[in-house]
Amino acid sequence: MALQVLSQQAKAAIEAEFPKYPDRRSVLLPALWIAQREVGWLPETAMLDVAQILNLSPVQVSDVATFYSMYHLKPVGKYHIQFCKTLSCALVGADALLAHIKTRLGIAVGGELTPDGLFSIGLVECLAGCGSGPMMQINSDYYEYLTPQKVDQIFDDLKVFGQSALASRPYRIPLAMVS
């Protein structure tokens, strides 16, 4: 049966995971990562493709895809913001900063995309950046010690360059503390 949305490259990338594990089912989390990287989120068709490649039932795949918060069951922006709401960040101003981000982008948390499709915001629990809050993750990168000014700069950078020099480097704190 032909795959519905995943490319042959994605299939090959999933199959390259097989030797790491004694069974196919263990490749499910890596396979969903590969599928999401290619499609941008996990539509049902992508889950069916993963099920076919791994020889699992569709429900085994959706059972897992719906459990883990980083698998997107709806489309997200090209730059998806995971904003930390947990205590340590909240103690140092996460609420006020989130209000700024929502105003700046003109979207609500969860599900909404900016009209250009570039940004979406998800509220998440602790990302292990508790000493450097408020903080957020956008795609692969962490952004820490955030202020409204830094957030504006990061969004501008992403729009223009697709990346920002304000992304966190290998984490050393307080050695790397920013004033």
Partner: peptide
């Protein structure tokens, strides 16, 4: 082996389930 966003997978047996391709 990368997790995918679930605090509970830090619990050692949930971690094993997650490696095995199941809910943590």
């Amino acid at each position: 082996h990368r997790g995918a966003g679930a605090y509970i997978c830090g619990e050692e047996t949930a971690l094993l389930e997650s490696i095995e391709g199941k809910r943590g």
